[in-house]
């Protein structure tokens, strides 16, 4: 399978001595929808910065669709569309000027750029705003403008650095649909996000980065299968006394809410059976926390503990 991105031994030390990347290895296959997760300061944005040539690397190699970042920089750049974390367009230019100019930097003629601008701005609901200065757009529109801008030269790899930060739920979901749609058309997508639900919904594979190293690189399915215990919150008809659940750890929050830790091998049926036998009726149920969030916290903590014990 063609590799969309191959990073090996990537190191970055900033002026002042901060070592942001400490030998990072990462591979993303063509067509993938890949999530890069990590706590603040883990090295996600530095990694993206190096790949998109905004940050000079200290050591290591980066290849994009087989093109080497050091010796085939122009080819690497043509393959990538970047949606950065912060708004980085000229706020005084119009929406159309911003996207057409960006296409021009990639060598796309003005006529073709205008055709593509209509296509992508329409798809992202911005065509009506094409003659408005960018500063007049809402936060969500500005995010979509950056996606349109990144697509104008039709890249094979789209990198999004927290694309839905500060975007309302409805808009976020419409952006998810759009990204899923373009991934379906063959564009490889790498996404960093703090919304773990976003990664779980969209991405097939995932890398977790902490302190400049990848601590987990696997499929979403394999990662979630590592989750052995899930905590559920059950809303019951109000009851008297204290219910019991053999084989489960349980906490009573009040006289109609239970919090139950359910090991995967036991399953939920046994919880319902026992509650039913005690005459208790379950009205509704929800996960206490996002499943991926629990795993993410565990993995980052494990990684740090291992590192401390080695040191």
């Amino acid at each position: 399978m063609t590799k969309a991105l191959e990073i090996s031994g990537l190191k970055k030390t900033y002026r002042g001595g901060l070592q942001a990347l400490k030998g990072l290895d990462l591979t993303v296959n063509e067509g993938d929808f890949y999530a890069l997760l990590g706590p603040n300061g883990a090295g996600k944005s530095t990694t993206i910065g190096v790949v998109s040539s905004l940050v000079n690397k200290t050591e290591g190699s980066v290849k994009v669709f087989g093109y080497d970042l050091d010796s085939q920089l122009a080819d690497v750049k043509r393959c990538i569309g970047l949606v950065p974390q912060e708004f980085n367009f000229n706020q005084f230019e119009t929406v159309l000027q911003i996207v057409v100019n960006q296409a021009g930097y990639y060598g796309v003629s003005r006529t073709l750029a205008k055709e593509r601008a209509e296509k992508y701005l329409t798809q992202l609901g911005l065509w009506e705003k094409r003659n408005d200065p960018a500063r007049t757009l809402s936060g969500g529109m500005k995010r979509r403008l950056m996606i349109a801008r990144a697509l104008l030269h039709e890249p094979k790899l789209l990198i999004l650095d927290e694309p839905t930060a500060g975007v309302d739920i409805e808009l976020r979901r419409s952006m998810w649909d759009y990204l899923t749609q373009i991934n379906g058309q063959g564009i490889t997508i790498i996404l960093t996000t703090h919304y773990l639900e976003e990664a779980e919904t969209l991405c097939r594979n995932i890398g977790i980065i902490d302190k400049g190293r990848i601590i987990e690189n696997t499929s979403m399915k394999a990662l979630l299968s590592k989750l052995n215990i899930e905590t559920f919150v059950l809303d019951l008809d109000p009851y008297d006394g204290h219910p019991t659940l053999d084989g489960f750890t349980m906490r009573e929050l009040d006289n109609h809410t239970l919090e139950v830790d359910v090991p995967k091998e036991r399953g939920l049926n046994r919880v319902f059976e026992q509650l039913s036998a005690q005459g208790l009726k379950v009205l509704s149920m929800r996960n206490k926390a996002n499943r991926l969030e629990e795993l993410f916290v565990d993995l980052v903590e494990q990684g740090r503990n291992q590192k401390e014990s080695v040191e």
Binding site: S53, K77, N88, F89, Q102, Y105
Partner: peptide, 12 residues
């Protein structure tokens, strides 16, 4: 405004 990045990420 960091829009210099528009040029830096492109093959310019």
């Amino acid at each position: 405004q960091r829009n210099i990045e528009e040029m830096l990420v492109a093959p310019v």
